[in-house]
Nucleic acid binder design. Structure first.
Length: 882
RNA sequence: GGGCGCGUAGCUCAGCGGGAGAGCACUCGGCUUACACCCGAGCGGUCGCAGGUUCGAACCCUGCCGCGCCCACCA
């Protein structure tokens, strides 16, 4: 009689994610699992958390990023590290600014009408409302960030860290103010930095205009080509190449600028490409970066012809008051009316810079007075840190991008004409004096502060140390800086990562802000296309959480995360992950119902199956650890998926069934089931936190898997004998099942069988269980034989199918086997027939091929004999062995 | 124009010098006392094209074709 201990659990039969998740996160928080302890003697592991963009709802990209971060953290926590997140919510986000601005427009008001104070009040309200929503959505995902540790707060538009950093850079001469050609966003009415500009090919026009005399032969006539006709209102010269014979005689003369009537010089400049267009270029120094440089070289006047909204202004022409695009047409038509349009090319494809900030619009090069950071020394340090290996970029393929950028960086425009952000800590006196003040300094009475705010990346760049209390020398800063790792998307490598590196190295005496930069890709739709609202292929992360559960969403995200590469994600992937969680649930239920436990020690005499699964567990644990250390989330998760489903559930659980029925092995099997599941649930916890905690506590009675020790030496060393026997068994079972399937024998029908040549009693018992074979009775009459060559030699399984078998099906089955063997034989013969191969290839390889050849030849002989022995008459004739 | 990368089963991808793999999809059987969100079996690929190196190439080299991303001041 077998003893079956009562199930020690009341796990529901059905896995319902919502019910499992309910209240669990809150319990973890209450118990303080996520809290860091600066006084702990455990090793610190700190990680910088990118902020979720506060747009009202959880974006799948954030779910992805935060899942990866949390996988790392949860594992480290289980490994005994004192883990600390450095989250920040209130960095000066232009996204929020733009959203609020949009809302104001919808209300019929504007930033300017509202005034600075009221506007900031609105942005705070927005943050409070939507920021809170995002946080609770992150918690639903299971992300274990302790957001209560938030320390980076933008108060009064300026905080200690930002002002300290600004002043240091200012005092070191690394921040300066200058009138430069900048990227201007007319919609935002603000300057943007170079990397906030996206170059995009657009269909424009290339228009050739005759300046000066309308008479082609007149020396005072010259034709210029432009894609921006309207800027001719601000032209102050025409330039040609100094060696261009066509125009040599014109250099130095003056010509009349159409529509405006101003006389402008014709100059020579190397910049001009004589091959392009007419070889003559109009120069608008205030509205084109190249023209600005030319203007500077020749001391040209630089009249601005547009206001900050991109409207033509101050030209004294009829075009004043027109939008720049409107003016482009109007000016062109006015020129045409004068007969000055010589040629037009339309569409003319060329690259135009667009604002990467909402709204997406062509940027307007504009001459304006702004604050800049002199980045060359800072960027060099950032490059050197990676070059010298003090900071590791992962994956390595992205390093060239880092160097290319960091080593060729232009000065960084840090002022923004926005109101959301840290205000520039510079004050102007009544006599035009300028003073930069640190956090604890007060400006003299009557001085006024600069109206502009800092680029969002200036303040965000301070994150890793300002969150730890910098500039003060705090306990946290000493313990957690440099942080262990930064996990973020490659898309903000330059925006955010580079700034943090530059500031960190500068402010912390050369200590980088993190040891490792682990870059992930972007989430794309199931066909690898970029998700976008306009394409309609975005996914609703919250809906997925509702439908499939947080564990499934996290598992799917982790399972697709290959370092530095984009990740296609569709509903199918999440569905597969949901199915996986259900599978895990059911397997654990089975184990518990059969008395699985971690309490008893592993059996002194494990069965082959026990040894095999315990050996595999040890291997898999090693793989998972190595992969996670290398940020190979996809491969680690895939390894766990395969082990759990394809090995543990499909084979071990099935092999455990007969073992549980046998008094001699039942107790040991319960222990093995318990030990494997215990380790497996721990290994899966980072990628599926809720279900693993529920199952693990049910299995072990422990407090929580969140704080359970990460498996180190689990299972048993690999036992090759046992492993080989199980692989043999799997092969044999599959062959018998194949025979059954092809003979149309339903699984519910047990078939009497006699097994010869297997040699291992336990294997035969397992075979009978898995292939549904009964022992041969007295009336046993074999009607067919399944023959398989295993490591120990051929094994015969004679089956009594109670009557005639389907000969044609059997012939087809054997025919396929024969063809496969023949193919194998031919391939081996071909190789072995090549003397160079036998001569030069390593002996082990040659021996391997020889062995395969022999096996194939034996198979052919055996299968042929089997075919010949089949009764004729049914099925195709004449297929006997020759 | 420069840099990085990708073209492998219907789809999404892994493999990166010695027997073509996974998940999903598909076909055929099955409600076998954990699971039909399941079980079993199966079908499916001149590994983009062309050369080269090698005893041997999906894998290394060269060229070509197609695609993606990043960087770049040519009107």
């Amino acid at each position: 009689m077998t003893s079956t201990p009562a199930a020690r659990t009341d796990l529901p039969a059905q896995f319902v994610p919502g019910e499992v998740e309910a209240g669990l996160y809150e319990r973890w928080v209450e118990r303080g699992y996520f809290e860091a302890d600066p006084k702990s003697d455990r090793p610190p592991f700190s990680i910088v958390i990118p902020p979720p963009n506060v747009t009202g709802s959880l974006h799948i990209g954030h779910a992805f990023e935060h899942t990866l971060i949390d996988v790392l953290i949860r594992r480290r926590r289980m490994q005994g590290y004192d883990t600390l997140y450095l989250p920040g919510m209130d960095h000066a986000s232009i996204a929020v600014h733009a959203l609020v601005e949009k809302a104001l427009v919808a209300e019929g008001t504007s930033r300017r009408e509202l005034g600075r104070e009221a506007f900031l009040e609105r942005t705070w309200e927005w943050k409070a409302e939507h920021g809170g929503a995002i946080l609770s959505q992150m918690r639903r995902l299971g992300e274990s960030v302790d957001w209560t540790r938030e320390r980076f707060t933008m108060d009064e538009g300026s905080n200690r860290a930002v002002r300290t950093m600004f002043k240091r850079l200012f005092d070191d001469g690394l921040i300066y103010r200058a009138e430069r050609m900048v990227n201007w966003s007319p919609a935002l009415r603000s300057v943007l930095s170079d990397i906030e500009v996206e170059h995009k090919e657009v269909d424009g026009e290339l228009v050739s205009i005759r300046y000066g005399s309308l008479d082609e032969g007149d020396p005072d006539s010259i034709v210029v080509a432009t894609t921006r006709v309207e800027t001719m209102l601000g032209d102050t010269a025409v330039v040609v190449h100094p060696d261009d014979d066509r125009y040599r005689h014109l250099v130095g003369r003056e010509i009349e600028l159409p529509l405006v009537g101003r006389r402008i010089p014709i100059l020579a400049d190397d910049h001009v490409d004589p091959e392009f267009g007419t070889g003559a270029v109009k120069v608008t120094p205030a509205h084109d970066p190249n023209d600005f440089e030319i203007g500077r070289r020749h001391g040209l006047p630089m009249p601005s012809i547009m206001d900050e909204s991109g409207v033509i202004a101050g030209t004294g022409t009829e075009f004043d008051g027109m939008d720049r695009f409107e003016a482009r047409v109007a000016v062109r038509e006015a020129l045409r009316a004068q007969g000055r349009i010589v040629a037009e090319k339309r569409p003319y494809r060329h690259s135009v810079g667009h604002s990467s900030r909402a709204p997406y619009e062509p940027i307007e090069p504009r001459l304006s007075l702004q604050w800049f950071v002199k980045v060359t020394p800072l960027a060099k340090a950032a490059g050197d840190a990676v070059r010298e290996g003090r900071v590791v970029v992962h994956p390595k393929e992205l390093e060239p991008r880092w160097f290319a950028w960091v080593d060729n960086m232009y000065d960084w425009t840090i002022s923004r004409q926005l109101w959301w952000g840290h205000r520039i800590p510079v004050w102007y006196g009544p006599e035009g004096e300028i003073v930069c003040l640190g956090p604890d300094e007060e400006p003299p009475a009557g001085w006024t502060q600069d109206d502009d705010v800092l680029d969002t990346w200036f303040s965000s760049g301070l994150w890793p140390f300002s969150t730890l209390g910098w500039p003060d020398d705090t306990v946290d800063l000493r313990r957690y800086y440099p942080t262990s790792v930064l996990v973020t998307g490659y898309d903000i490598l330059f925006f955010w990562v580079a700034r943090m590196m530059m500031f960190g190295l500068y402010a912390m005496d050369g200590a980088p802000p993190f040891h490792t930069i682990a870059l992930h890709g972007m989430v794309r739709d199931e066909h690898g296309k970029k998700m976008s609202k306009s394409a309609g292929n975005t996914v609703d992360a919250l809906a997925w959480l509702d439908r499939f559960g947080a564990d499934a969403v996290r598992f799917a995200l982790a399972r697709g995360a290959n370092p530095g590469t984009d990740m296609p994600l569709g509903e199918d992937a999440v569905l597969a992950a949901r199915n996986f969680t259900t599978k895990l649930w059911n397997a654990t239920r089975f184990a518990l119902a059969n008395g699985a436990s971690t309490e008893p020690a592993l059996p002194a005499e494990p069965t082959d199956a026990d040894r095999w699964i315990l050996g595999r567990l040890r291997e898999v644990r090693g793989q998972v650890d190595a992969l996670l250390e290398d940020f190979q989330f996809a491969k680690a998760t895939e390894a766990l998926y395969h082990f759990t489903w394809g090995e543990f559930c499909d084979w071990y659980v099935e092999l455990a069934k007969p073992q549980l029925r046998d008094e001699a092995t039942a107790e040991g099997t319960r222990a093995v089931l318990g030990h494997v599941l215990d380790a497996l649930l721990k290994l899966l916890h980072p990628v599926a936190p809720f279900i693993t905690d529920t199952l693990w506590t049910a299995l072990t009675g422990g407090e929580s898997v969140v704080v359970a020790p990460w498996p180190v030496e689990v299972g048993l060393p690999v036992d090759t004998t046992a492993a080989t026997r199980i692989v043999d068994l799997q092969k044999l079972v599959t062959e018998v099942r194949r025979f059954r399937t092809e003979q149309g024998i339903p699984d519910s029908r047990r078939v009497a069988a006699r097994v010869a040549g297997l040699g291992v009693a336990a294997s035969e018992m397992a075979l009978r269980s898995l292939a549904r074979l009964d022992p041969p009775g007295e009336s046993f009459t074999p009607t067919a034989t399944v023959e398989v060559v295993l490591s120990g030699g051929p094994v015969h399984v004679e089956l009594d199918t109670s009557g005639a078998i389907d000969v044609s099906a059997e012939r087809a089955r054997l025919g396929r086997d024969l063809a496969a063997a023949q193919k194998e034989l031919d391939a081996a013969d071909k190789k072995l027939g090549n003397p160079k191969f036998v001569d030069k290839a390593p002996a082990a390889i040659v021996d391997g091929i020889r062995a395969r050849r022999e096996a194939a030849a034996a198979d052919i002989e055996r299968v042929s004999a089997r075919l010949a022995a089949l009764p004729s008459g049914t099925g195709p004739s004449g297929t006997g062995p020759s």
